[in-house]
Amino acid sequence: MDATMSRRAVLTQRTVLASVIGFLAAVLVPLAVPMLLPVASAHDTLISSSPATGESLEQAPKTLELTYSDEVLNLSPVVRLSNSAGEEIFTQTPAVSGNTASIDLPALPADSYRVQWRVVSSDGHPIEGTVDFTVTVGAETTDDADTATDPASPTAAADSPQPEPTPADQAESSPAEQEDSGLPSGMVLAGATLLLLVVVVLLVLRTTRQRAGRGRDH
């Protein structure tokens, strides 16, 4: 009789143990697993530009505006403009405001142009791309334009090519990327879940053995 009761007690405790483990797994594992999965790429993208890519303009544009899907970081943005011969016209830093980056353009003659841009996405990763457009008539040459292109004028000095930021400079100015070096929170949560399961299993097994021992004594 005592042996039968002891076996029933063991079976009952095993059933309780399985139920507890199943409950904890159902509650905690769905919380931990998504945090262990690789984070999907969520880089911002260029959604529009003025001039638009592939656009043909009779009048040379005075400004370039790039609009992104989210706010970009003002960390060493770069815009490079070149003509159809591949000659670089300038490399400058655009003004970043929210999800737009803009820059003034010099007087452009009739030609095909390529804009190469690079900014830092809101998630802290650099993104880049190109915008191609064509000017069919071009800007008229005026005395003001000649003055603006005079090497001795302050405007020309401001429009002079600037050195392109190196990868080392970007690494130093992009704290969002450096913060990823810590221990992933998903691993911490998964470890805590596993530890909790082990503790519960040990407690249930200990209780089962104690009750089985008392059953044999009686």
Rank of each mutant, 00 (worst) to 15 (best):
P165E: 07
I89N: 04
P175L: 00
A148W: 03
A85F: 15
E87L: 09
E87R: 10
D150G: 05
E179F: 01
A101C: 10
S122W: 00
E164M: 13
S121D: 01
V78R: 13
G86C: 13
G182L: 04
N99A: 13
V96K: 11
H125G: 02
Q170P: 01
S153D: 03
T136A: 06
G98L: 12
G124V: 00
Q170T: 06
G182W: 03
L189H: 00
L75H: 14
V78A: 13
L75C: 13
P126N: 07
A152Q: 06
T130D: 14
F90N: 03
T155W: 15
N83T: 04
V188K: 00
P163D: 15
Q92V: 06
D180A: 04
A157P: 10
Y113E: 00
T130A: 12
S84G: 07
R118P: 10
L105A: 04
S160W: 12
T134L: 09
Q92G: 08
T155K: 12
P154A: 12
W117Y: 12
D144K: 15
S112E: 15
I103D: 15
T136Y: 03
S84D: 11
G186V: 00
D180K: 04
A168C: 11
T166I: 06
A156R: 09
S173G: 08
S181I: 11
L81N: 04
A101R: 09
P154C: 10
P106G: 05
R114T: 15
A171T: 02
S173T: 07
A148H: 01
A107W: 01
T134I: 10
V96R: 10
F133C: 05
T142K: 05
P94T: 07
A110R: 02
H125C: 02
F133Y: 11
A95L: 13
F133G: 03
L105W: 02
G138V: 01
A107F: 02
T142M: 08
Q92I: 08
V137G: 04
Q162A: 13
